[in-house]
Design a protein around this nucleic acid. Structure first.
Length: 424
RNA sequence: GGAGGAGUGGCAGAGCUGGUUUAAUGCACUAGUCUUGAAAACUAGCGUACUCUAACGGGUACCGGGGGUUCGAAUCCCUCCUCCUCCGCCA
């Protein structure tokens, strides 16, 4: 959520940003500024009346104490009239605030200057292409869902039996591979300074609101009605909310956290080759990295995160490229996003495995996550997050790219975690 | 799930028979005085948000959240949440 005073002071910038996003309703900015104006007028009037009535009430108290009953009674009658006005103004103020919130929730973040113009994912810029040349596989190479069957690694059918479509069941070396990847990622992340967090998997409404899943993406989350809780769609939600409402000292920044959680997404949507196997499922495992940064450092931090994720993929020996998302594809809350895609030689397509974003103050404004600057003033911090990494598609990529006629080779970096170097 | 108790500023803690509380007091913190320096002592400052003002400086709201009674609520009433104690259940 943008801050009103930011919109007020940077109207042109905001409008240009919306244009870059191909945002259909730029008039909303003028509506916001109008409501802000009238809201402030209402508040000024209300505050004046409140100050008066406060004074009068006090003097009534004094009069009673002095025993001047009649005078006090007269004052009482006088105040009663302004009370009605106060109530109305309070209501009006509340309404303005509500209207304002509604409008602000519809305004996406302003894209960073480096974000290219464009309408859809086809316009994303290749920020870093894969230089090594794309791998080619042997004749009988298979997609991961066939490999899973051949080596008994996971079963979608059993998931259907137990739960429903999109809930894979991993078994044997497939299950072990999951566990190995989770440990590997967490160890790599903590090694560079991220604090490991194991959060609750169900979150309350305030938390879901803090990172922006509510109200915008309500339908994408599983909801437990009886307890009014949501199953988390990503660890970003609970982990970023760790510091919700806090005012940190400047020297406490940055806060770096990493967490593994299963992720639950309803993703009502398409079926077919693109979502076969593990390409898109309702439950998958992901290790997330989250940072709370000083605004001056957030873009340097973003670079570091991108570099870190690239390092992980290198260790897993997966060919990947990095995209800078264009204005039309960058997510609602993000100012700048880099997507990582690994190349699946078996599916002959790129698979998105990580998305690393800087949200600037868009989340912290809702979270009320601030720090105290050198002058002692509170300022909104910046938040960033990225997948490091999302398992299901990494598994797909590992199985497909490292398959040999003799079996599936486990990258060296992962072998200490799996305890085997081959799936055969 | 049942019964009882409690939620006050960074922390501790008073106020809770409604009106000198504009939230006492202590600790912590910041600045100054003193000191070679430090400690101690003393003096002053010390919450958040919104808002008015060119600025100095004002105003309003907030005592777990929301609502109500009243001229006036930290204080009374309703409701929700959380924590503590005991009982029950339980990985």
């Amino acid at each position: 959520m943008l801050q009103v005073h930011f919109i007020k002071e940077n109207k042109e910038k905001v409008l240009n940003g919306l244009k870059k996003r191909n945002f259909g309703n730029p008039e909303i900015i003028d509506q916001i500024l109008e409501i802000d104006e009238s809201r402030r007028a209402t508040q000024t009037e209300l505050n004046q009346l409140q100050a008066e009535s406060k004074q009068v009430s006090k003097s009534i108290g004094d009069l009673f104490k002095q025993g001047k009953r009649d005078e006090a009674e007269a004052m009482r009658a006088k105040v009663a009239t302004s009370k009605e006005t106060i109530k109305n103004l309070e209501q009006q103020l509340g309404q303005s605030e509500e209207d304002m919130e509604k409008l602000l929730l519809q305004v996406p973040n302003i894209p960073h200057d480096s974000v290219p113009f464009g309408k859809s994912e086809e316009d994303n810029e290749v920020y870093k292409a894969w230089e090594g040349g794309l791998p080619t596989l042997h004749e009988s190479a298979k997609p991961h869902w066939e490999l899973a069957e051949q080596y008994n690694l996971f079963s979608l059918d059993l998931g259907v039996k137990i739960t429903g479509a999109g809930f894979p069941l991993y078994r044997g070396k497939g299950a072990k591979l999951q566990r190995a990847l989770i440990s590997f990622f967490l160890d790599e992340n903590t090694a560079v300074g991220y604090e490991e967090i194991q959060p609750p998997l169900l979150v309350n409404e305030a938390t879901a609101r803090g990172t922006g899943q509510l109200p915008d993406k309500e339908g994408q989350m599983y909801y437990v009605e009886k307890d009014d809780l949501y199953l988390l769609p990503t660890a970003e939600v609970p982990v970023t909310n760790v510091y919700r409402g806090d005012i940190l000292n400047q020297d406490e920044l940055p806060k770096m956290m990493t967490g593994y959680t299963p992720c639950f997404r309803r993703e009502a949507g398409s079926y077919g080759a693109h979502v076969r196997g593990l390409n898109r499922v309702h439950q998958f495992d992901k290790v997330e990295i989250v940072r709370v940064e000083h605004p001056d450092n957030s873009y340097a931090a973003l670079d570091k995160m991108v570099e870190h994720v690239g390092m992980l993929l290198n260790k897993l020996e997966l060919p990947f490229r990095i995209l800078r998302l264009c204005g039309g594809d960058v997510s609602f809350a993000s100012a700048l996003t880099f997507d990582f895609e690994i190349y699946s030689a078996a599916q002959k397509r790129w698979l998105e495995v990580s998305s690393v974003s800087n949200f600037e103050t868009f989340q912290t404004n809702r979270l009320k996550l601030r720090y105290r600057d050198e002058n002692g003033k509170t300022q909104l911090a910046h938040t960033l997050n990225g997948s490091a990494l999302a398992l299901a598609r990494i598994v797909a990529g590992l199985l497909e790219n490292h398959q040999t006629p003799e079996g599936i080779r486990i990258p060296e970096a992962l072998q200490p975690y799996t305890g085997f170097d081959m799936i055969s």
